[in-house]
Design a protein around this nucleic acid. Structure first.
Lengths: 224, 224
DNA sequence: CTTGACACTGAACGCATGTTCAGGTATTAT
DNA sequence: ATAATACCTGAACATGCGTTCAGTGTCAAG
């Protein structure tokens, strides 16, 4: 017959060691030493810790840089990716121009900011140039954007057909978020809400594209 | 006169060391040793590295656990917070019931998932119970939610006034996202779009609340 | 010129830490 | 009983790695 005593893939001690390594790394920003693992998991001998670490390495739960002090790390089954910070430069209002970052703007000067997971980004923008605006008022409802929503944008003066852009219409003194289409006689600004009609802008009329919309985030208030 | 030679807060070498530590930590998941810093920054002596590390510590750019191998970490001026993973259980369609997590559901089984920064959460939900749905079709435009949007929800059968809820109306065979208000003669389901009229549901009519909406994320396609 | 700060070299010192080994004690299979 | 395997002890060993110190060269102030 086969050994049954501890047939589970991970024994109690394996799990305890694994948890300790993760906690320690989170707390001190560097991995623990073998002796520290022993002390905190009730293991008196360094060789036993090494014994368990070998097993955890073989089972693929951790990775080790032998001979290197504190050179171990847990292989997370569901690795959580990177995130980046996007500065909130101000508010976007229908009746006012759009705040855009100055060329020498230091992105870390912004008082407010939002954090975005890299995995949520459509393209590999890496977020280097991105900025965000908070929508004020409900004048953007035709763009399916509500009061309080966060609009993440990439600064640009040009747009391709199908891009959602933030534009400033000097003649109308109006800021708006629309899908951009270039047509023979000018530009068509199509609302995101399919039940609403587009705005046609002739070539003679001024139209300033301030940026492409990359993402919209709505934080819904919860009373509880 | 005063010394001017290197009056800047950070010299070229300070910056190089700082960059190297960050790169190394990102790559190997543990901090570098003094000697490794020296080799990669063109510094031949460990004492010089120590010399610079002392300065970086005094200027508040790094933190050191003396006597501990590789016990150093950069103090990021803008520390990036934690994030958590929310499973995408399926799609939400106007004409079909809402997928909700089973009580014994293992959240990590979901094939798809989205990552949310903890700082974006309105409350301290910690994301333990949250799940997400992808909106299919544009039948939710009255809730300012578009085709392809990600709706993050907290499972619940109850709601308070003002909560945005996902409800299933058995009589109408319809799923909808609305703001919830309890009134004398029943419930009022208010669209997020202020130009649209509410749905009134009498007490006698069945109404199943499936969850509160916590967040809406719209990833805008970009051609470039 | 002298002084002194600043940046750096090279080496030695010593604790921290990973590794290895000889040997125990159970539990299970043969 | 005997062998085999999993689990553990204790100690010694080798080296990784932080620390310290006696000097060297440079540059600017006095």
């Amino acid at each position: 017959m086969m050994m049954v005593r501890k047939s589970k893939g991970l024994g109690e001690r394996h799990q305890k060691i694994l948890d300790f390594i993760e906690d320690y790394q989170r707390k001190y920003k560097h991995p623990p030493s073998i002796r520290e693992i022993g002390e905190n998991c009730g293991i008196s001998s360094t060789s036993v810790v090494n014994y368990y670490l070998d097993q955890l390495e073989k089972s693929g739960h951790i990775e080790r840089d032998r001979k290197i002090s504190r050179g171990l790390r847990v292989i997370s089954q569901t690795p959580i990716g990177e995130m980046f910070r996007v500065p909130v430069l101000g508010r976007i209002v229908a009746g006012e121009p759009i705040p855009v970052p100055a060329s020498d703007f230091n992105y870390f000067d912004a008082e407010e900011s939002v954090e975005i997971a890299t995995s949520l980004m459509p393209t590999r923008e890496k977020g280097k140039e991105l900025f965000a605006l908070e929508v004020q008022g409900n004048s953007m409802i035709d763009a399916m954007v509500n009061d309080g929503d966060i609009v993440v944008m990439k600064p640009t003066q040009e747009a391709r057909n199908g891009d959602m852009v933030a534009v400033w219409l000097p003649d109308k003194n109006e800021t708006t978020l629309k899908y951009f289409y270039k047509e023979k006689d000018g530009f068509r600004l199509q609302p995101a809400n399919p039940t609403m009609k587009p705005i046609m802008v002739k070539k003679s009329e001024p139209l300033e594209i301030k940026g492409k919309v990359v993402m919209v985030i709505r934080k819904v208030e919860m009373v509880s």
